[in-house]
């Protein structure tokens, strides 16, 4: 009886091993050109590619159509208009200026323009040109390319999920 019990145990162990082996998928690929919907080159480090999801990619498109002229050092057409505008607009990846601003503030200043938010009237309102989705996408893109990187403000929900992450990962893999 002892032996058969041992056999049974062995069978269970093998089964368990087999199951846990199947759970593992192939090693994660890290090249963002293959793993992300779209990429953007980090302006401060040309070797680094920033992965973008669908929404951020749409923001990138809108940015390069409408915003790049004043919020970048170089534009698709060549020279930037940034130096002609005063006060000088901030670069879209300038996290030191844009990170402290809330999504809501950015949404308002893009929608209503600078003068409505007590800033320069040189920033025009885009609320009648861009859709709400497009404005959200531009903000998502801004957050993705920010240098220093942007961290969303902590809320109770995300605090909790951060605490849980390590445990969950340990149990699924």
């Amino acid at each position: 009886m002892k032996r058969s019990g041992l056999l049974l145990l062995l069978a269970f162990v093998m089964l368990a091993v087999q199951c846990s082996c199947r759970g593992k998928t192939s090693s994660a690929q890290t090249d963002p050109t293959i793993t992300a919907y779209d990429v953007e080159r980090d302006w401060t480090n040309p070797d680094r590619l920033i992965p973008l999801n669908f929404e951020q990619s749409q923001g990138k498109r809108v940015f390069y159509e409408k915003c790049v002229w004043c919020h970048a050092e170089a534009t698709p057409a060549g020279p930037s208009n940034r130096s002609n505008v005063s006060p000088t607009p901030s670069l879209i990846n300038d996290g030191s200026i844009l990170n402290p601003l809330s999504d809501e503030f950015l949404r308002n200043i893009i929608t209503l323009g600078g003068s409505a938010m007590g800033k320069s009237a040189m920033m025009p309102p885009w609320g009648r040109t861009l859709s709400q989705e497009e404005i959200r996408a531009v903000i998502a893109y801004t957050r993705a390319v920010a240098q220093p990187p942007y961290h969303p403000p902590a809320r109770p929900a995300s605090q909790y999920s951060v605490k849980q992450t390590s445990k969950e990962e340990g149990s699924t893999k």
Partner: peptide
Amino acid sequence: EVKYQCQSCHTIGATGGYV
């Protein structure tokens, strides 16, 4: 010149933007 500040993008005379 004042309310809408179109000169941020358009040039009149020798001053203004390139957009």
